[in-house]
Nucleic acid binder design. Structure first.
Length: 608
RNA sequence: GGUUGCAUAGCUCAAUUGGAUAGAGCAUCUGACUACGAAUCAGAAGGUUUAAGGUUCGACUCCUUAUGCGACCA
């Protein structure tokens, strides 16, 4: 690594200096200079002794010896010349290095000095980032798919913040288009002046109710037309309700006051509903964009492209971009009647975001069904010569399936977000009551605890899977509290909280000097190594835009701590320095669990 | 039809980006509470990584072909 560059977390620093030592060893023993890049160092698998492992196969050619011989020679040299290496063993082409306990203690001392929540500067990482997520349509309430999107977007934004980036969370609300008109038409027909208050229904659910009503009556109309002998595709267009909705869309674009008024009213209800849901699931936004306000800007971009000659007009007046040279197709940008399509407004929004924030990375959290669309968007912006085109990044995540298969609104299998949250909170409540360990908490604190645990379970469940992969949502598994789950990690935190309370009460020396410790337990060594890797994990999660990396890490930390907890006495330890060290190690673990879960949008309980 | 993604234990997911005997959780079986919190811990069992070839010291990972499932573009 070149000097003055990337920040390395304590473990990476240690690895890096071990590599240097290995280079020196190769020079001393074999008289050969080895490039650092050919040294692959990895954490030792736990069935072998040691903490770091050098793979010696790649060195056989350069050193002219067999892999075992190389391992022996380098290991022996390090053991005698490098004080941080206390021992070694060679298994086939793998040299396992044992690190002296003094080094682990020094590492822990370093960790003690800096809070886990401090930013992790990362070289080459974007500085100003816009993360667009959630981005709902305003004709329906949020569902399970939106939850994966929301949790991902929120978490990625937090992870990027933790690398020191300035992050803006943006929500692009799709507030216009045929789908809202459908809800509006149905409301005009069947609503009878109903409001969220009069119906006792959240506004987003009310709008959804009318959308469903529209679809229902619309289908009936189609059926009837078909019975009269009209072909299906024609019936779909001729059905009176659809014709009305189309008319309303045009009236909206023309700015007809009555239509706009109803539109504002219904969208207002929906926003109130969304806000309640967002608050309930703990996500937030710094900036809202509305497609009703960006699509005109998009039309300007289309004009710009025509002027620059990178777009072209067909005979019917529609505007297209030819992306065949980029391996894509021709793409419609503006209809013959001058109305915009999805991508029109996307062009406008991208421009607006850039004007507002001058980002060097603009992340779109959108399901992978839109992969093609996002490629087209980026390629089109490139054609326009936009400086920010390369900064666009599609965080493409897989769809969520149910045990019964795909979610389908037509078959009524869509899992409603509000209902789901209610269910997981109820499950957490039932489990907590059964355990009966929450004496002394007020009713209000209890409600907060149930919510924190239920959402912890749900968020962890949805975030622990690699975002890119399609995943299966099993309702029973999502409320589980044992094993690889959010509450498992939360439990470890609560346990440590108890230790800290007791330690404070009994006056354990928090500032004790641990350098006097002679040796560490295996579980202590392992914990220190893991905790010292936190910053590296955050950097990797930011690079990969993957909360799953953090989820896996924090689970491993909790597991190691639980093992440590059962195997080693903490407050019952007689030696005051050992005791103080173990309390401090526990406290650091809690801090890192809290920080890690925080990156996932999950809170921690002091007791549970 | 064209483009593209995925396939790992009974189920849900990992695998440090080409490294050791492919690891966890759930489910199944066994053991540990007169313990600093058992929402925990220790252990057993569970695999031809969809199939067949290829590349090399070494392949779940890269290449080719086939099969299955999905998405997008018409």
């Amino acid at each position: 690594m070149t000097p003055g560059s990337p920040y390395l977390c304590p473990v990476q620093q240690l690895e890096s200096s071990l590599k240097t030592a290995l280079q020196t060893a190769a020079q001393a023993v074999f008289g050969v200079e080895i490039p650092a890049a050919s040294l692959t160092l990895q954490p030792t698998r736990k069935e072998f002794a040691g903490s770091f492992t050098l793979v010696t196969f790649p060195l056989t050619k350069a050193l002219g010896k067999g892999p075992e011989q190389i391992g022996q020679a380098l290991g022996e040299w390090l053991k005698t010349h490098e004080p941080r290496v206390s021992g070694y063993n060679v298994v086939k082409g793998f040299l396992n290095l044992e690190i002296a306990d003094a080094e682990w203690l020094a590492l822990f001392e370093q960790l003690r000095q800096q809070p886990a929540a401090a930013p992790v500067p990362t070289e080459g990482a974007p500085r100003r980032v816009v993360v667009e997520y959630s981005s709902p349509n305003t004709n329906k309430p949020l569902h399970l798919g939106h939850l994966r999107n929301n949790f991902l977007g929120y978490s990625v934004a937090e992870i990027l913040k933790a690398t020191g980036a300035t992050v803006t969370k943006a929500n692009l609300v799709n507030d216009r288009g045929i789908h809202i008109c459908k809800s509006m038409i149905a409301y005009q027909h069947f609503g009878q002046g109903e409001t969220p208050e009069s119906a006792g229904i959240k506004g987003d659910h009310l709008a959804g109710k009318y959308y469903v009503l529209f679809e229902k009556h619309y289908r009936e109309e189609i059926k009837q037309l078909e019975a009269e002998g009209v072909a299906t595709d024609i019936a779909k267009k001729q059905a009176p309700l659809m014709a009305e909705a189309q008319q309303m869309l045009q009236a909206w674009e023309a700015g007809e006051p009555a239509v706009k008024a109803l539109w504002s009213q219904m969208n207002g209800w929906v926003y109130e509903g969304f806000d309640a849901t967002y608050k309930n699931i703990g996500v937030d936004f710094d900036q809202y964009y509305y497609e009703s306000e960006t699509y005109l800007l998009g039309k300007e971009r289309v004009e710009e492209g025509l002027g620059k000659g990178v777009f072209f007009k067909k005979e019917n007046g529609s505007v297209w971009v030819d992306l065949q040279a980029e391996g894509l197709d021709e793409k419609l940008l503006l209809r013959a009647d001058g109305t915009s399509v999805y991508i029109t407004q996307d062009l406008g929004t991208a421009e607006l975001k850039y004007q507002d924030f001058g980002y060097d990375s603009s992340i779109y959290v959108i399901a992978d069904e839109q992969n093609y669309h996002m490629q087209v968007l980026q390629a089109t912006l490139k054609k326009l010569g936009k400086p920010y085109a390369d900064a666009i990044h599609h965080l493409s995540y897989g769809m969520v399936d149910l045990p019964s298969g795909k979610m389908k609104s037509r078959e009524g299998t869509v899992v409603d977000a509000d209902e789901l949250v209610r269910d997981v909170v109820a499950a957490a409540k039932a489990a907590t009551l059964e355990k009966g360990k929450t004496e002394g908490l007020s009713d209000e604190e209890l409600e907060e605890l149930y919510h924190l645990l239920g959402l912890g379970a749900l968020k962890y469940y949805l975030l622990k899977v690699d975002p890119k992969k399609r995943m299966l949502f099993n309702p029973e598994e999502s409320v589980r509290l044992e094993g690889d789950t959010g509450p498992f990690v939360q439990y470890s935190y609560a346990r440590i909280s108890k230790i800290r309370r007791d330690a404070e009460e009994s006056g354990v020396d928090a500032a004790a000097d641990f350098s006097k410790l002679v040796s560490l337990e295996v579980t202590e060594r392992e914990l220190v190594q893991q905790l010292a890797g936190y910053a590296g994990v955050v950097a990797e999660a930011a690079r990969a835009l993957s909360p799953a990396v953090v989820a896996q890490y924090v689970y491993e930390v909790a597991r190691s701590y639980n093992r440590f907890y059962t195997e080693v006495p903490i407050l019952k330890e007689g030696d005051p320095i050992k005791k103080a060290f173990r309390v401090a190690l526990s406290a650091k673990t809690a801090e890192i669990i809290k920080a890690s879960l925080g990156l996932l949008g999950i809170n921690v309980p002091e007791r549970m």
